[in-house]
Each structure stands twice: as structure tokens, then as C-alpha cells.
Design a protein around this nucleic acid. Structure first.
Lengths: 193, 193
DNA sequence: TATTCTTGATTGACGAGTCAATAAACTTCG
DNA sequence: CGAAGTTTATTGACTCGTCAATCAAGAATA
């Protein structure tokens, strides 16, 4: 039972935060969405904060898995070139990760990181992984510039996420990928000139 | 008295939210920082939400003024070229706007916009102004591409803000400007080739 | 029986907003 | 001038609701 209930609570937490657009979500609301009483939620997680952190970890885990998958697929097919960077972008803006409620939850966890050290640590992991993935992909293409370009690209990715939460209508991952790829193309074109 | 007290409350709201890194700030805390009782804060603003919105408007106003000032100064001295865009960037990352607590408040207001329509409207104004300022500056440099480049640049600016709240140490506006200008240079170089 | 699962009820704290009352400043007009 | 009246400024105390967390007790299961 424990793993099932925990998973249900974690998902309910993400959806609830994402839909409400705020961390002002009661344990009772989350528990109800997950189909149980608030007391049971406390029984399994001990505290609301633990639930939030577990939800963050879940987001990180899913995102990380998708990135790894995309990279693997990309290397199998194209073997290098812009493939790895493109893979990271595609995974970042995939329908799974670029969902409205997921993006809303991300933003709220970013806020949480300002006051909860454990949350800050989790986000730092995300940032390191993203940066490192981009640099590995960029090194063969841009050499010494890889670090700077990765920094700019990472900022742009986060910015595209940030802006998504205010848009209405369905998220458009392809457009986001296009914007980021355009940046990349411009940087690489300059390097070659 | 009214304008003085309101101004004090607005500033206290920004600082309190920025330092705490969260909208979970009590009216009593804000009022205390502004040197008055919570009842008086309610007397002048009616509700906590009104205080938040007034604080957002203040941020928008100060930012807008600084951008206008920078554009005017830039046109007087260099007359066009990348001047206008650079002016927008410099204003965006000026020591006044790129302060830790201000950036923290921005991020929190972004979250607020998800659930409070009035806040969303204010942010939409900011986005429109930013985009339009960038497009005007980019049109002579990039022609039809101006819109797309502006979109990417705007996302990057917001992303740089977003990332700032997790960094430690003093904000480095110059580095942020450099990253954004680098993006711009790459895009323009490609256009000329 | 013992262990795990589950919840309704309760507690204790906290916070937004209201209110009644006091104090200060300003206005009116005799 | 100066007394009576009026508007503005200000606060402590209070109400009312909410919510995280706990607990004791009741199913279910092994």
C-alpha cells in the first residue's frame, strides 16, 4: 500500500499545485484528490513539506529519465552533431514535461527553493545536470565557447518555461524548441564564420 | 499622510516578500516594517491583495521609468544601432531592478499572476512593453526577424532573472547583460552573413 | 493475535479583516 | 480669538475562519 499511496499523493500534489498555481494548497485538498483522508497523507509523509519535496523529486526524476532517453535515441540515430543538445531541448519541452500543471508546479517549487534549503538543493541538481548535458553536447561544436553558450541556452529554457505559465491555450513545445534551436543555430553560425 | 503611508507599505511589501522569498507574509509583518499597525495598513489598502497589486505596480513603474531613461540617454549619445536594445538590457539589469529582494518579489508576483487576474494583467503589460521596446530597437537591425529575436531575448531576460534568485552572493547585472548581448550579437551576425 | 491501514474528531496556532474608541488636525462661525 | 463640530489618523482587542498535525479508535489482513 505504501508505495501506491505515496505515488498517488505525489501526483496529486503536482496537479493540485499546478492547477491552483500556488503553494497555498491544503493537505486535505491533496489527499482528497488522491482519494484518501488528510490523516493518511500525514501518516505516510509526516509533513506537508516532505510531500512537496517528494513531488519535486518526482518532477526531477521524470525529467531526467526523459532527457536520458532522448539523448540515447538521438545518438543511436544521428550520432552527435547538434543531436545531443536538440535531444535535451526536445525532452525539456516534451508533452510530458511541458504540461501546464507541471510547469506551474515547477515555478512554485522554484519559489519554494528560496525559503527551503532542501528544495534549493534539488533545483541545484537540476541546474547542474542541464548545464552539464548542454556543455557535453556543445563542446564538439563550439569548443571553449561551450560554457557560455550553455549558460545562455539554459537561461532561455527556464525563461520559456516561466513565460508558459502566463500564456493561455495549450502549451506549444515545438515553438519553444524552435526558439531555443534558433539561438543555438545563431551561436554556432557565428563560431564558424 | 495617506501617500506617505501607502508608499511605506508598498516598499515594505516588496522587501518583505523578497527577503522571505514567499507570498506567505502577514499584513502585520509588512505593517511593522513600515512602522505602523496592521489595522492601519488595512485602513489604507482595504486588503492584502490590494497591497500586493500596488507593490507590483510600483515595480512596473520603476522599471518602466528606468527603461525610458536609458533609452533616452542611449539615443542622445549613440543614436540607434544596438543602442536601444542595449539600453533596455542595461535598465533591466540595473542595480535598482536587479536587487535580490526585488527579483525575489518579481518571481513571487509571477506566481501570484497565476491565480489573481489583476496580477496577470499587470504582468501582461510588462511583457508587451518589453517585447515592443525590443522590436523597435531590432527592426532596423534585423528586419522581419525582429519579432522572433525579440521573443528569444525576452525569454532569456526572464530566465536570467529567474536564475538569479537561486544564486548566492551579490547579483551581477553586468554578466547578465553580457549573456544577453552575446545572444543578440550572434543573431545579428547571422543576419548579416 | 498482531500488524498494517484508515479515518473522524480534536487541538492549537495563526492570520485577515473589523470595530469601537482615542487622539490629532483642521474648519466654521459667533 | 476660541468653542463646537468635523474629518483624518491610529491602534488594541476581538471575531471568525482555516489548517497542519495528532490521536484514539475502528476495519482489514496476515
Amino acid at each position: 500500500m505504501e508505495p501506491i499511496r505515496k505515488a498517488a499523493l505525489v501526483n496529486a500534489t503536482i496537479v493540485e499545485i499546478g492547477q491552483k498555481g500556488s503553494l497555498d494548497v491544503t493537505v486535505a485538498q491533496i489527499a482528497r484528490r488522491a482519494g484518501m483522508s488528510s490523516a493518511l497523507a500525514h501518516h505516510y509523509f509526516g509533513s506537508k513539506e516532505e510531500m512537496f519535496l517528494a513531488a519535486m523529486r518526482q518532477l526531477l526524476t521524470v525529467y531526467g529519465a526523459e532527457v536520458r532517453g532522448a539523448i540515447a535515441a538521438s545518438e543511436a540515430h544521428f550520432g552527435g552533431a547538434q543531436g545531443r543538445v536538440r535531444a535535451v531541448l526536445i525532452a525539456s519541452f516534451s508533452p510530458m514535461n511541458f504540461r501546464r500543471d507541471v510547469v506551474g508546479a515547477w515555478l512554485n517549487f522554484w519559489v519554494l527553493a528560496q525559503s527551503v534549503p532542501a528544495a534549493k538543493r534539488l533545483l541545484a541538481i537540476y541546474q547542474r545536470r542541464l548545464h552539464s548535458n548542454l556543455v557535453v553536447g556543445l563542446r564538439p561544436l563550439a569548443g571553449a565557447q561551450a560554457g557560455d553558450i550553455a549558460a545562455g541556452l539554459a537561461a532561455m529554457i527556464d525563461g520559456l518555461y516561466l513565460r508558459e505559465v502566463l500564456k493561455r491555450g495549450a502549451p506549444d513545445g515545438a515553438a519553444a524548441v524552435a526558439t531555443a534551436m534558433d539561438y543555438l543555430a545563431a551561436q554556432l553560425a557565428r563560431g564558424e564564420k
